[in-house]
Amino acid sequence: MKQSFSKRSTMTEIAAKAGVSIPTVSRVLHQRPDVAPETRKRVEQLLEEHGLLQRHAKKLSRKEHSGIVDMLFPGFDSMYSFEIARGVEEVLARTDRRLAISSTHHSLELEQHWMSKIQHSPSDGAILVLAHGEPRRFDPLHRHNIPFVVVDHAGELGLDTPSVGATNWLGGRTATEYLISLGHRRIAVITGPTTLPCSQDRVAGYRVALEAAGLPVRPDYICQGNFSPDSGYTQTNALLDLPEPPTAIFAGCDEQANGVYRALRDRGLRIPDDMSVIGFDDVPTASIVTPDLTTIRQPLREMGRVATTMLLHLINGEPLDSIRVELTTNLIVRNSCKPLDDEK
C-alpha cells in the first residue's frame, strides 16, 4: 500500500513538472500511442529520472492479453445500441477475441460502478457507447492501461480521447432541407436530451436550414424528448394542440418516430397525407413500419466497426490515423413524407 501511494505521488509530481495531466503521464507510462511526440519525450525523461519507466516496462512485458473486449451501452431496449454492437461483433469475429456486453440501464451511478469494476477485470480494452463524457471519469481506464474508444460521445471528451461519431449537424440540416423542398414551412422537431451533443447538433442543423430558407425558428416547434417512443407520442400530441400545428415533424430518432406515428393515428391523422414525418438513424424497423419511414441514416454498424478497429490498434500499441472519426449521415427517402398540398 505504501509503494502504491509513493507511485501515485511520484506521478503527480511528474505531471506538475511536465505541465500535463496525471492521465497523460499514465498514457506515456503504459506506452499508449495517443500522446503528442514532444509531450511523450518530456514525460518519458521525467519517468526515467524517477525510475518508473524501467520498472513499468518489465511489468508490461509480463502482461498477457485476456482475449476479452468489453462494451458498455445505456440499455438493452434500443435498436440503436444493438446495431453498433453488431458492427463490433463483425470485426471481433475475424480475431481471437470475444465481446462482453454490459448495460448501465441509463444510470450514471451504474456507469461509474462499471468503471470501478473493469479496472480489476481481465479486459484487453473497452468500447463505450453514449458514455457520460467528463474526461476524469475515464481516469480508472487510463490508470490501469485499459485502452478504450467512445462511440457517439455524450459529453465533453479530452482532446486525446479516441472517439467515433456521425455528422449529426449535417443530418439535422439535411432532414429539414428535404421537408422544405417538399413545400413545408411549419416544421417541428422533437429532440433527444438537450444535454447530448448529438441532440444539440441535430437541432443546430435544423435551425440553420430554416434560417437559410428565410423561415422563422419557432420555439413552440422545438420539443424536448428523450429518444423514446413515449416522448415522441407525448410531444406530438402537444404539437397537435397548438393553435397552428406543424405540417411536418422531424423526430430525433427512428424509435421516437414510432411514438409520433402512434399519436397521429390516435388523432385520426394519416401519414403522410395529413403530416409528413422524418426520423434519424435508419434502424432496421424504419423500413418495415407503415408507411416506411423516411429518415437520416446514421451508419451505426459502421461506427461499431470503426471503433473496434481503432481499439484493436490501441491494444496492439499501434498509432491511430485520427483520434476523432466522424462518419457521414445521408437521407433515405421512403414514404412518410410528401409534398405539401397548397391549401395547407
Rank of each mutant, 00 (worst) to 15 (best):
G87Q: 03
L29C: 05
H50K: 13
A57Q: 13
E48T: 13
V25L: 08
P37Q: 12
R86K: 14
R27V: 01
T24I: 08
D96V: 05
L99D: 01
A57H: 07
G75T: 15
L52N: 02
R55V: 01
A57V: 04
F76T: 12
V91T: 14
P37V: 11
F82S: 13
R27D: 08
V25E: 04
G67N: 09
E89P: 05
G87H: 06
L29P: 02
E49S: 06
R98K: 13
R55K: 13
R42D: 01
T24W: 09
L60F: 00
S81K: 00
E89R: 09
V28C: 05
P74R: 15
L92T: 13
E90G: 02
V43C: 00
E38C: 02
L29T: 03
V35G: 06
T95I: 08
L92G: 10
P33L: 13
R42A: 11
T95C: 07
F76D: 08
I101Y: 07
V43A: 01
S66F: 09
I101C: 07
R27W: 03
L46K: 02
F73H: 15
E48Q: 11
R62C: 00
L29H: 05
A57I: 05
A57M: 08
S102A: 09
F73Q: 13
H56A: 00
T24Y: 09
E49W: 02
F76S: 11
G87L: 01
Q45I: 00
D96E: 15
R40H: 07
S78I: 11
E89A: 08
Q45C: 03
G51Y: 04
I14Q: 08
H56E: 12
I22W: 06
Q54V: 09
R94H: 15
R94E: 15
F82C: 04
Y80D: 11
V69Q: 08
L99Y: 01
R55E: 10
T39F: 04
M71N: 05
H30P: 01
Q31M: 09
V20W: 09
L60A: 05
F82M: 14
L53N: 02
A93Y: 14
V43P: 03
S26I: 03
G75N: 15
L92F: 13
D70H: 13
V43S: 04
L72W: 12
R40Q: 13
D70A: 15
K58N: 06
D77Y: 14
A85K: 08
M71P: 01
P37Y: 10
F73V: 12
Q45Y: 01
Y80A: 07
T39G: 05
R98Y: 10
I84V: 15
L53T: 05
L92P: 11
V88C: 11
S102I: 00
S26Y: 05
G51N: 04
A18N: 07
A16H: 12
K58M: 08
R27T: 03
E64W: 03
R40G: 01
V43R: 06
F73L: 15
Q54P: 00
A18S: 10
T39A: 10
L60E: 04
E48D: 13
P37C: 05
